[in-house]
Design a protein around this nucleic acid. Structure first.
Lengths: 223, 223
DNA sequence: TTGCAATTCAAACAGTTGTATGAAACTATC
DNA sequence: GATAGTTTCATACAACTGTTTGAATTGCAA
């Protein structure tokens, strides 16, 4: 408790290495070498390798979640308990996108770590992600208040698609850049946020009956 | 060459195990035990563990890609070289969704394997996915022909979002079911396809100038 | 049958992994 | 400055990994 030096040196080194090389091929020995501490230090301070990874991920994701809720709460207070759907969606995907995209050379270690965490799915992180449901429910609630005419099903699908676009864009940002030959500028984070929010809003506010019927009418049977 | 028996027994056993337990904790010894063959057989027939995984994944994904292109080609021929955007999008996301969703108890081993492959990202599979760009370009081309007024940037973003919604829904289908308390029915695959296609279509056909500007106007600065 | 190649097999190999141990070094309190 | 508690360290451990080897077996052609 006196000197957290070793502890935080390990955290920093681990985050850096995982960010750069992924979870797959970073061993405890790599981490302690980078941190300049003894091999046994990890198990002494964190219990196990998985608990180290979990602590890293938890720290970063509660920070993001706090930021999300802060934006959400501010928006609902502004609107007297009811926020515009665009603002809610912005609070949902904005912090994550801002945290993970942007010019690569000025991307923080934390950001690069979180990208890794969303690309490579490793057991301790997956366990934590599964507990994120309560957090998402708060957004579902706000969305329901914002769009009282919408059915729950539509709300959940809208939420799902918003997260889908944000996370997939982060995960596959490299591929999108390559595919579009650089025409899609992933460094312009606010543009990305605007695009995601805009599409998610359309998904949530489009004419209710139309959503299913016409799409179905276009169904073609596979020969 | 004479008897592929061992070879295909390995492929089948590996696919089954990976589908059930993920890539993380299935060893060669697990596979050969399940297949009832000798440990050395994997290296004899496939060269290495990674090449075995790669062969599994390639087989399944060329099947999906072929199906996609078949639908796309049929649609474009129907329309004299220009297909409606909904049909193109349906050809893009339909085969994947149909292959991976649907009632769990009647989900094929192949489907469960592909879900795993999209959740756990393992090196040999990632290498293959990176070569999928050429395939996606064909869809970008068809979309451009279908929406000649749209800019390339918008086309690529629409493509990206369509894939995002499809893949994320597959990856997180369990979470969406839990979050919505079963209200979102992921077993009704055609409904899922219709929802994805509908939203992606809106993303691609919404008023051009509006896409960016109004969303930006709603931007709030963090206090 | 004989000969030759393809396949199977048991066994060992070589390397790496996360973790545990017990002694040494340190730190702060009295 | 002795003591008790914390932290560091070198080292060993035990298990597991994918891969290789070389001999046995099989299948097929001449």
């Amino acid at each position: 408790m006196a000197s957290d030096h070793t502890r935080s040196a390990i955290l920093a080194a681990a985050e850096r290495l995982y960010a750069d090389r992924g979870f797959g091929d970073v061993t405890l020995r790599d981490i302690v070498a980078e941190a300049g501490v003894n091999l046994a230090a990890v198990n002494y301070h964190f219990g196990s390798k998985d608990e180290l990874i979990a602590e890293l991920f938890v720290t970063r994701s509660i920070a993001t979640n706090r930021e999300r809720l802060r934006e959400l709460k501010a928006a609902e207070e502004d609107g007297g308990g009811r926020a515009p759907i665009e603002v809610i969606l912005r609070a949902l995907v904005g912090p994550t996108l801002r945290g993970c995209l942007g010019p690569e050379n000025q991307r923080s270690t934390a950001a690069r770590f979180m990208i890794r965490a969303s690309i490579e799915s490793v057991p301790p992180i997956r366990r934590i992600k599964n507990r994120e449901i309560d957090h998402l429910r708060k957004f579902a609630g706000a969305m329901r208040r914002s769009l009282p005419d919408r059915s729950d099903v539509d709300i959940y699908w809208g939420l799902n698609f918003a997260l889908a676009m944000a996370h997939h864009t982060i995960r596959e940002s490299e591929r999108l850049t390559k595919l579009s030959e650089g025409k899609c500028d992933l460094d312009d984070v606010e543009d990305v946020v605007a695009r995601v929010v805009s599409v998610a809003t359309m998904a949530l506010t489009a004419g209710k009956a139309e959503a299913k019927a016409p799409a179905r009418a276009l169904a073609r049977d596979a020969r």
